[in-house]
Simulated assay, not measured.
Amino acid sequence: MTLVYPAIFHEEDGSFWVEFPDLEGCQSFGDTIAETMEGAKEALAGYAAVVLEEGKQLPTPTPIQNIKPEEHCFVSLIDAKPASTKRAVKKTLSIPAWLNDLAEDAHAPYSAILQDGLEKYLHLA
């Protein structure tokens, strides 16, 4: 699942910091815009992982055109995938034997396929 949120970039004393108006407390900083962009992606990925791990929903991103930055600031969209959490849940499931045989012959990665399928089903992908 890829997330896209608007971020406001600020310049202060020759360095930069970024905030996500929809994600309270989600911020990063850097010496250059490129470094700050990377930090923004990492901050978004980590923030999202924590929210989702807690079983909460992320807020709907504000349309970028609705954000009016202060002078000497600019808005950009940041995309990131939630950081992988170490917590995994084992699931036991049943599938038809013929499907299992085909999947095993193809060396199908069951966990990845199930995760991708659930993300699509839940409209997270």
Score class of each variant (00 low, 15 high):
T2D: 07
Y5C: 00
I8V: 12
I8D: 14
I8P: 10
I8T: 10
E11M: 05
E11W: 03
E12C: 03
D13C: 08
S15N: 11
F16V: 01
D22N: 13
L23Q: 08
C26G: 08
Q27M: 13
F29L: 02
F29Q: 15
D31C: 01
A34S: 13
A34W: 07
E35R: 04
M37W: 09
K41S: 10
E42T: 14
E42S: 12
A43M: 07
A45T: 01
A48S: 06
A48N: 09
A48I: 05
A49I: 02
V50G: 14
E53F: 06
K56C: 08
Q57G: 11
Q57C: 11
Q57R: 13
Q57V: 04
P59Y: 12
T60H: 07
P63L: 04
P63A: 02
P63C: 08
Q65Y: 14
K68A: 08
P69W: 11
E70K: 13
E70L: 15
E70Y: 14
C73Q: 10
F74I: 05
F74V: 04
F74T: 01
S76E: 14
S76T: 09
S76D: 09
D79V: 12
A80C: 07
K81E: 11
K81V: 15
P82D: 03
P82N: 05
A83T: 11
A83M: 09
S84V: 12
K86Q: 14
K86C: 06
R87Y: 07
R87W: 05
V89R: 15
K90C: 06
K90A: 13
L93D: 10
S94L: 12
P96A: 07
A97N: 13
A97Q: 12
W98Q: 10
W98S: 13
W98F: 11
L99N: 11
N100P: 04
N100Y: 11
L102V: 11
L102Q: 14
L102Y: 05
A103F: 07
A103I: 05
A103E: 07
A106M: 03
A106Y: 05
H107E: 06
H107L: 03
A108D: 12
S111N: 09
S111I: 07
A112Q: 14
I113S: 04
I113M: 12
I113E: 00
L114Q: 06
D116P: 00
G117R: 13
Y121N: 09
L122G: 12
H123P: 09
L124P: 01
